[in-house]
Design a protein around this nucleic acid. Structure first.
Lengths: 345, 345
DNA sequence: CTGAAAGCGCTTACAG
DNA sequence: CTGAAAGCGCTTACAG
């Protein structure tokens, strides 16, 4: 418990504290003999520099605050993994905090992180208001993903969600589907709104009329997808395919279908959004719009690192693409299917 | 960027730094007028105390180090969620780091955390050697889960994995299965070893001979389960059920079965271990041995908090139980199934 | 109830 | 190449 300090090391090695600090940080040349003496002392005493003292002296923490909505989400998990990966290479430690889908918690996290003097902030697909974010950005560099936000000190990185929504919907249309349901994301999520827009735009282009009864909101989680699926089935409006605003809801939806005895893709085609790594392991493997979430994590970390270095963040968001697997199929017995899903409701 | 300090606040409020510190921490009575003046100054200046200075002065960080193997794992995700939840209620901030399934990284994480002066350490289902852990435990309280480790300063919390392995296997035996394959976890994971032991013990009790050809190792991840499944099928040794040492491998296994045209549970019954929240959403919903991972997180955090308080950690690990869902079924056409799975190989 | 002062453990000009 | 000294921003006995 009685941890040794730099002065203990200095005494043992017969040098000054300054010298110990220099070998610790490699910040200046030190005579080879002293260097060795210090290193030996450090090893023998098991000395571990106190990051608080260091941070207080330097004004830097070598830590990055990362706020997502949940530590146990597959979506945020992949994002955090990307962030962790690129931060590690540069000597920064990420501190992950969860906003739990409400902006109060999100703001609390940010304050905590600022007190801990993180050198920068990544708000990964958050929902805190733009004004608040802009305020915080006056104190430290911040990058936001999943939205576009123009303010000094903030860099935003987001994928073309609308194009993704269009891609998914067009794929279903190409397979002959006309009655395509949509399970939307939370209304206040910018990316969720964009995906809905893409869905409607694809419908328009194909001359398919938009039916409000085929659109129902979800919460981006499995349970929300399941519930949405049940609502859809109860609605009585026939459909042969459903596009879900994210993969997790697509998983949940399929449980609802399963309970009704409906099979994917035989009875209903399903498309997701994200391409979580589990999408390929789901049964049937899920057709989805790929947005490389881990790569978004990498890129956001890279951008932040550049901002901390006072450089311009020169990264570009990856583009979305359709990954066709086994949850979608050409509509063959359209009438039968549609009526069957109808009857089931 | 020019953040205000406690002395700025003191000047503005017309009091001493000590007084500001007292209202900040509620550590002593302060005259109501001064109290208000200080609070006002704090608000107006947007003052945020510097956690480094505070930590240096108090010797405490109000942070807990948590090392798991991966930030994007569903298993560790649930554990981290539990930890986060109970820590939040007590004002501690968790710092999550990932060991990536190798003890070097794990040790690096611990050192980093110690430098940041965390007040305690939770090693959640890690694999670092007992000796190293015991050493670290001399510096700060540590709780380990998923293993039993007797050393001063460490508290271990683990579920009865052997009983769980027995439960799963007995369930399959009760359904009439005799040729039960086992996809094991990493050899160096104590909990993985215990589950294997449970499997063998159940077999023994039922008078079923243990067939090495039906046991193959995995890595606790989906891809490892898929690969293990392919090895099992290639082996040519017939089986009608498989017990997987965790849920993620059970998911991966089922992709391999799907690719061979084998259906669960019609052709093969599958049991997992953990009962991840996704297990209920998988298709078919997975029969599995439940160990409440989030609760293990809660409990480990509670135990650590008690240790930090110099109290005896008085928590007991939850017990495991079998959750029967739809991935297991009574063997009916045993011969046919077995030979079919054989032929497929 | 309140303030002056010492101290926490580092880093970093500064002088040599 | 090296050391003495000041300073980072708090907290906390201590004295009143």
């Amino acid at each position: 418990m009685n941890r040794s300090t730099i002065s203990d090391v200095a005494r043992k090695a017969g040098v000054s504290e300054s010298t110990v600090s220099r070998v610790l940080n490699g910040t200046a040349r030190v005579a080879a003999t002293k260097q060795r003496a210090v290193e030996l002392a450090i090893r023998e005493m098991g000395f571990q520099p106190n990051a608080f003292a260091r941070g207080l002296a330097t004004g830097r923490s070598n830590a990055i605050g990362v706020v997502t909505q949940a530590i146990d989400s597959p979506f945020y998990g992949e994002g955090m993994h990307g962030i962790e990966r690129t931060l590690q290479a540069s000597g920064y430690t990420p501190i992950f905090m969860s906003g739990h889908w409400n902006s109060d918690d999100e703001e609390r996290c940010i304050r905590e992180l600022i007190q801990r003097r993180v050198d920068g902030l990544i708000l990964f697909a958050g929902r805190l208001g733009a004004a608040r974010i802009a305020e915080f950005a006056q104190q430290l560099p911040v990058v936001v993903t999943g939205r576009t936000l123009d303010a000094p000190g903030v860099f935003s990185l987001s994928v073309d969600d609308e194009a993704g929504g269009r891609l998914a919907t067009e794929h279903l249309i190409d397979l002959g589907h006309r009655r395509i349901a949509f399970i939307a994301g939370p209304r206040d999520h910018p990316d969720a709104q964009a995906r809905l827009k893409g869905y409607r735009s694809a419908l328009d282009h194909a001359g398919i009329t938009y039916l409000p009864a085929l659109v129902t909101p979800g919460d981006f989680r499995e349970e929300g997808g399941r519930l949405a699926g049940e609502r859809l089935l109860a609605m009585g409006e026939p459909f042969t395919a459903v596009f879900c605003a994210n993969d997790q809801m697509a998983f949940g939806l399929q449980l609802a279908l399963h309970h009704r005895g409906l099979r994917v893709p035989d009875d209903i085609s399903v498309v997701g959004f994200d391409d979580l790594s589990t999408a390929a392991y789901f049964l049937p493997p899920l057709t989805t719009v790929r947005q490389p979430v881990d790569q978004m994590g990498d890129l956001s970390a890279q951008a932040l690192l550049m901002m901390i270095d006072k450089r311009d963040p020169a990264v570009r968001a990856p583009s979305v693409s359709l990954v066709v697997r086994e949850s979608t199929r050409k509509i063959s017995l359209a009438g039968a299917r549609a009526s069957r899903s109808n009857r089931a409701a």
